[in-house]
Design a protein around this nucleic acid. Structure first.
Length: 452
RNA sequence: GUGAUUGUAGCUCAGUUGGUUAGAGCGCUAGAUUGUGGCUCUAGAGGUCGGGGGUUCGAAUCCCCUCUUUCACCCCA
């Protein structure tokens, strides 16, 4: 087929979709603003050296690489150019890549602009990111993230604030969510206590799936990943830990006593949940010890938010990272942040039918076009209405009225105004309400009142 | 990256064991209605059946390759 197309995993957005997407972005942005966060933007492309190694081996594979401009192959020696040598070739001819998330570019930004920034630095950033993943349900190759981060503060008040932001955003969007919280230090502690500290990543990846595949499958996977049977049986009581957050923390406190890191994590969680209890949070918030999250840079609290009334996966996630800027040369800069996945939020709202009905409606009044004289008469009236803040269009062509009415109908424009010979001679406007079909002849002044 | 799956008119889809000119509904255009939409009626336009190659007297239909869609795994928003 020779029809035009767009790359796999990317999408066009129609006006109807954009109005809805903007509704989501505007809601999120306005909440960020009330907490004092300020906007920044970073380029779509980063140097690959800033990106590689930050997201694990899997992440590196998912980076879109940008071919060097000019003569990218000119300086590549012939013996590198073998089919089995693609990684050496790409590193020789690509020095830029598309951003994979907003957190790493933010870390780079903070390091580069440290002298101009006031810490603790609070910023938000709403921009697209790209991942060369195979697209599937709720997964795109180009999608927007809405990030809020504070950097330069270790206070757990920041974590509490993020929970508050999540709560407010989803309350305004009318989505019921479950906010899951865990702590990487607790996970490290668990790995330590069961004697598998070096298997931390394997353990977290496996137990993260417990909701999906069940306890037995997780145990099998742990064994496959080389965790000893005694460690697995030691781990089991933690995986099946039930009760309130306070009860879970109490059990963990004794269980994790041998691990300094683990105890630190428990203490952090206790403080955080203490803050949360004072905040009148409306959404459900729970301590979920199986929550792990793949991104390797998290070191403290981790968050994940799921919509309760549909299965779309995680729609928001984040956590604390103690040393993200370290790789870029700035030590001791702890930060916390979360990222709202606007595209998945859109999908949730679509499946649950949560968008306001007439969000797409914009133009309020259409002036029909009946001819040259009429155009001249209508132009200043339209200008005055626009000055009053009313969205007005003039039909640009002298088409048949039938066609102009059909246009108004399809665009869902509630009023149409007709100025022809009759109206011109009487200095009036014929106004028709497209919903009721009623039609009235009005003066210019009456017109403004009738439609506003 | 692994394993499946989809592709026929603008859209949603029919198309019988390979057999003449590939159909429907909706939408679109024009008219019935030369200053009036939503309803109705009439007429019309629109497809090298995703692309390439092959088998066959003959392919939308069978085979191969490729692209695309959707889904699961991996991973994640």
């Amino acid at each position: 087929m020779s029809k035009p197309s767009i790359p796999k995993g990317t999408r066009d957005f129609t006006p109807t979709e954009m109005v809805r997407r903007n509704y989501i972005f505007d809601t999120i942005r306005s909440v960020f603003t009330t907490f004092g966060y300020l906007p920044i933007e970073t380029p779509a492309m980063e140097n690959l050296s800033s990106l590689l190694g930050k997201y694990g081996d899997e992440g590196d594979k998912l980076l879109f690489r940008v071919l060097n401009s000019g003569e990218p192959f000119a300086s590549v020696s012939g013996d590198i150019l073998r089919p089995d040598n693609s990684s050496a070739i790409t590193s020789a001819v690509c020095e830029k890549g598309l951003r994979y998330d907003l957190t790493v570019p933010f870390a780079r930004f903070v390091v580069q602009h440290q002298s101009e920034l006031t810490f603790p630095f609070r910023r938000y950033q709403i921009q697209p990111v790209w991942r060369a993943d195979r697209p599937q349900k709720g997964r795109y190759r180009e999608f927007y993230q809405c990030d809020v981060d504070v950097i330069g503060s270790r206070s757990l008040l920041n974590e509490a604030e993020l929970v508050q932001i999540v709560d407010t955003v989803f309350e305004r969007l009318n989505i019921n969510v479950l906010v899951k919280i865990n702590n990487r230090k607790v996970l490290s502690g668990i790995a330590e206590v069961i004697g598998e500290a070096d298997k931390l990543v394997d353990i977290t990846v496996a137990i993260d799936k417990i909701d999906k595949i069940g306890l037995d499958a997780v145990k099998a996977e742990l064994q496959e990943r080389g965790v000893s049977p005694t460690a697995i049986s030691k781990l089991e009581p933690v995986l099946t830990l039930k009760g309130t957050t306070v009860e879970k923390l109490a059990v963990l406190e004794t269980w994790l006593a041998p691990s300094v890191t683990g105890m630190l994590g428990v203490e952090e969680l206790r403080t955080l949940f203490g803050y949360i209890s004072t905040l009148n949070i409306k959404q459900e918030v729970e301590l979920d010890l199986s929550l792990a999250r793949g991104l390797s840079y998290y070191t403290g609290a981790i968050f994940e938010v799921k919509a309760k009334d549909t299965e779309i996966g995680s729609i928001t996630g984040g956590g604390r990272y103690d040393d993200l800027t370290g790789i870029f040369g700035l030590k001791d800069m702890s930060g916390v942040g979360i990222s709202f996945g606007a595209d998945r939020i859109y999908d949730v709202m679509t499946t649950l039918n949560l968008f306001p009905k007439h969000a797409a409606q914009a133009t309020r009044l259409l002036f029909a076009n009946l001819g040259e004289q009429e155009e001249l008469r209508v132009l200043p009236i339209a200008a005055k209405l626009r000055q009053q803040g009313i969205a007005v269009e003039i039909y640009p062509d002298r088409a048949k009225l039938k066609k102009q009415f059909e246009y108004a109908d399809k665009r869902d424009i509630p009023f149409i105004a007709i100025v022809g010979e009759n109206e011109m001679s009487k200095n009036t406007v014929m106004l028709k309400d497209m919903r009721t079909g009623e039609q009235k002849e009005l003066s210019e002044l009456e017109l403004l009142n009738a439609i506003s």
